[in-house]
Simulated assay, not measured.
Amino acid sequence: MSDLHLYTHPMSRGRIARWMLEELGEPYETEIIAFGPQMKAEGYRRINPMGKVPAIRHGDTVVTECAAICAYLADAFPEAGLAPALNRRGDYYRWMFFAAGPLEAAVTNRSLNVEVPQERKGMVGYGSFETVMDTLEKALSGRQFVAGDRFSAADVYVGAHVGWGLQFGSIEKRPAFEAYFSALSARPAYQRARALDDAAVAELQKTTA
């Protein structure tokens, strides 16, 4: 049995963790946690008290939150080369947590039609949706990777947000975003992860039909 375990649902942010695990190339076990009673049950809440997926267990270590999962796995398996050297991690941390904070908050609020009053914009971490989109566009324009000259865990996390946003219309289809995600989505690990999750969705649909 592998000491890496993924708790997920194929129609969730668990797809990000799956992609990261496929980039590692290490064996791992998967447990699909159903939305509703199973995800909120006491047994799973011992893994994630929030009753949400994804989560990973690596030996005795449990990690939740997608950005934390990506950062942890990159450090736990350095041979995969998914994190820059410590003295070159400025952009790596910056953009990974930009996506976890300002980007996700701005996109979520826009999707929910939450309008922050002009005089209150200083109270929200992202300022405005337009500022976030412009900042992200500048970061990705003319670059294959978001942090340096090679693929990293930051690209998994930022790329997943960009790809999801482009697919569902929550992120504007700017050329820089489309070019960035097009290259990432051609990666073999991304294709494997997507196929695994799509197959899991199909299996769930059969059992509930």
Rank of each mutant, 00 (worst) to 15 (best):
E26T: 03
A186Q: 15
L184V: 13
A183G: 15
L24R: 06
P10K: 13
A202K: 14
G101Q: 01
M1N: 14
Q144A: 15
L204W: 09
G142M: 02
V146I: 15
E65Y: 06
I16P: 03
R94F: 03
V107P: 00
A76N: 07
L103I: 09
V132D: 10
L204C: 06
F145A: 05
A160L: 08
A199T: 10
H58I: 05
A68M: 05
Q205F: 09
G125V: 02
Q167M: 14
Y44C: 07
Y180V: 09
Q167C: 07
R187G: 14
P27S: 14
G163T: 07
F129I: 03
T30D: 04
W164L: 15
A41Q: 06
D3Y: 13
G101N: 10
Q144P: 04
R192Y: 10
T64A: 05
T64P: 05
G122I: 02
F77R: 02
S111R: 09
M39E: 11
L184I: 12
G165E: 11
V132M: 10
A139P: 12
E29G: 11
Y190G: 07
P37W: 03
D149Q: 14
Y92W: 04
I47R: 01
D134S: 13
A74Q: 04
R187Q: 13
G165V: 02
K52L: 10
M133H: 08
I56V: 09
N48C: 02
A154K: 07
D60P: 05
V116G: 07
A80L: 05
A153T: 02
D149V: 04
T208F: 11
N87K: 09
M123N: 06
R13D: 14
K173W: 06
T108M: 09
V124Y: 08
F168Q: 06
M11A: 15
R194L: 15
Y72D: 13
R194C: 09
E65T: 01
S170Y: 04
V158I: 14
E22G: 06
P78W: 03
A34L: 12
L136R: 06
P84M: 02
A160Y: 14
Y190R: 09
E203L: 06
D91H: 11
Y93C: 04
H5T: 11
E119S: 05
Y92R: 02
G59L: 04
H9S: 13
A80S: 11
